[in-house]
Design a protein around this nucleic acid. Structure first.
Ligand SMILES: [Mn+2]
Ligand SMILES: [Mn+2]
Ligand SMILES: [Zn+2]
Ligand SMILES: [Zn+2]
Lengths: 139, 139
DNA sequence: TAGTATATGCAATTTAATTGCATATACTAT
DNA sequence: ATAGTATATGCAATTAAATTGCATATACTA
């Protein structure tokens, strides 16, 4: 899937600023999710820390990015599927968190349906597998 | 299941201190997991913040508690099933995170088996459902 | 091109987590 | 019961993460 930051911004009625474009570019570079700390490092002083926080929040609200928390409570971000919108995300795929390289993959695997106990009404389910990723397996 | 802090400490070769007992008591009060911030509030100045961090860490390592991260990256703690040990946790049940009261429940539901793509080796899978809990449903 | 709305950067706060060290406490051996 | 040893605790200091307020810069509209 090709990412065009500029048109993504247009589609979501967001102003076109170089910081916003930059963040999308950086995240689109790799297919795996990127952690907020890594993102900060990559961007260095191109973008103010606070601005980055704000951009990531807006992107998440608008359905441009989805946030995946890793086992340490660190935020990771990945591009949403094209069908996500402000009101509703459609990113119910399984995530894979490598315990060696710590990368987080968005797998093309649907989150399995889970039968809830009486009284509990599940709206979304998140499912993360922890283990060794394909790259780390081949080393 | 009845919780006896003192014997739990014995079983795991941990020194019996009033702070450790206190933490276990507090967590055992409710069947739902308790968040670290809530725990801090409850304990007030009975226990130093740093000590609490350390106690929670050792309990987790020893397989006495398991940690569940909520959607905001906040740590929540719940008693482990009796079969958990230092080397191996057996807490692969589904968690339910209420989006209204924010409580986290350990459900008696096994995490479903997920088929991994070639190359990915899953060791554990975590599964959390978000929605409205039984209590909030009845209000 | 001027006017308006909002995004950005910077400084200041607030909150969370970690580290080092002196003292207190639990357990062991006598 | 007591003394000796190991380690848990509390406190102070650091480090790191996140939030807020506000002045200025920038993008879009008319
Ligand atoms: Mn994903
Ligand atoms: Mn649990
Ligand atoms: Zn890996
Ligand atoms: Zn609830």
């Amino acid at each position: 899937m090709k990412i065009d930051p500029v048109s993504i911004l247009k589609e979501h009625d967001l102003k076109h600023t170089k910081q916003r474009v930059r963040v999308l570019e950086e995240i689109a570079l790799d297919t795996v999710a990127i952690s907020q700390p890594d993102l900060e490092k990559k961007l260095g002083k191109e973008i103010d820390r606070v601005t980055l926080y704000r951009i990531l929040n807006t992107y998440q609200e608008k359905g441009i990015l989805h946030r995946i928390m890793d086992m340490n409570g660190t935020a990771n971000y990945a591009i949403c599927s094209s069908s996500c919108s402000e009101d509703h995300h459609h990113d119910e795929h399984v995530h894979f968190n490598c315990t060696k390289c710590f990368k987080i993959y968005c797998l093309e695997v649907e989150v399995p349906r889970i039968k809830m106990p009486k009284g509990f009404l599940a709206k979304t389910v998140s499912s993360t597998a922890y283990g060794i990723c394909e790259k780390c397996n081949n080393i």
